[in-house]
Design a protein around this nucleic acid. Structure first.
Lengths: 207, 207
DNA sequence: TGAGATAAATGAACGTCATTCATTTATTGG
DNA sequence: CCAATAAATGAATGACGTTCATTTATCTCA
């Protein structure tokens, strides 16, 4: 019997479903329906729903822009990469808990990204031993920031406990005229600058 | 009828259940059983399982050590706070997606932490407008690092794709004699130093 | 051409969950 | 002491992921 769809089709359908209905809408039943097939048929192509999530994750990784590492100065490459990375996974936060713990073995897109990033760090003059930890630190920050990007504008509204937290409340107010002004982008930029400066200092022969 | 247990008891039981069976073992049925009660009885005290998670989260927040901010120099306070924060949530990663997006309104423990941290930043000479974004950036890093702390030792094993990723594979190998040596702690420390240095530079009147 | 072998799809069935609801039971305040 | 209220019960519901025996289509090769 001709396969209605292989892993590629499943991945594409899953992505479309996620973009339309979010991760709550991504059920095996809905996925099968969007492919015109019975739910059980999916199990001829993937071994579990987690498998589907891994496929989606790999696909997203291929969309992260790490092109700067072969052309731009290190600082700008990192900035471009980090923004792209965060932007993509901010809309896929449920995947983060999967990625962060998923071995890269057999994840070609992910490996390709790491290879390019590693090369960029080498070219910039980083000692080999510092590179992986630096990437890990940057990724941790990017993943955390991706969650953050989804926070509601009123996340720091101290409500009726404002009186007991005067300094915090005042610091929040200082951010802008709007009552609740969540600085996700501002904060991301600030922390990224700090990381780039701090990690950049590890270079032995800056280029 | 006398309440068998209020929110405090539910929170404690949930924490115990999580520590024994993990987050997969935290079901409303198991929670009720551990309290000697029918599952439906829980709904007289909490409105949903998400509610239970919020209770747990608040409880954990009260265990984060932010005491340094009233006594230690800023750098050391941040370090102490960050290590404590990461250590606690590394074993509660499923909560991170909840916290990161949860308004602090009516979360007294969380607010108390923010107030203390804000005071520490003020005392260290940070301009008010920089404080919240700095905290947000640090928290993003801490949350991401908490995920990381759970990664398996072989997460960077490039397997049979090692040939196509020579620089990356070599960088991973350079970390140690063991074949796969995941540097979660090393990376956390490195990134934290970078953030502390970078953010610390924002102070106008370092103390 | 035709007979396996194989890959893929089906539909029914399971087990697990969170959650709801009508009802019963205990406690407390006036 | 009665009425109001708070809490617990057990049955039922509806998602959901997953399994499995069976059927159906396609491919291979003699």
């Amino acid at each position: 019997m001709a396969a209605v769809l292989g892993q590629d089709g499943i991945t594409a359908a899953a992505l479309e479903l996620i973009s339309k209905k979010g991760y709550d809408g991504l059920t095996m039943a809905a996925l099968a329906r969007s492919l015109g097939v019975a739910p059980s048929a999916l199990y001829n192509h993937v071994s579990s729903k987690d498998d589907v999530l891994k496929l989606v994750e790999e696909d997203l990784m291929s969309k992260v822009d790490f092109g700067g590492f072969s052309t731009l100065p290190w600082e700008e490459s990192v900035r471009q990469w980090a923004y792209s990375y965060r932007g993509i996974f901010a809309r896929h936060t449920p995947l983060i808990s999967v990625i962060a713990v998923l071995p890269v073995t057999d994840a070609p897109q992910t490996l390709a990204m790491y290879e390019a990033v590693t090369e960029g760090f080498l070219r910039a003059g980083f000692p080999e031993k510092q590179i992986i930890p630096s990437i890990v630190a940057l990724e941790a920050y990017i993943f955390g920031a991706a969650f953050d990007a989804n926070a509601p504008a009123d996340i720091f509204d101290s409500g009726r406990l404002a009186d007991s937290t005067p300094h915090f409340t005042s610091a929040v107010r200082s951010l802008g005229p709007e009552r609740n002004n969540y600085p996700s982008d501002l904060a991301f930029n600030m922390g990224l600058d700090a990381l780039i400066t701090g990690l950049g200092a590890l270079r032995t022969q800056p280029k």
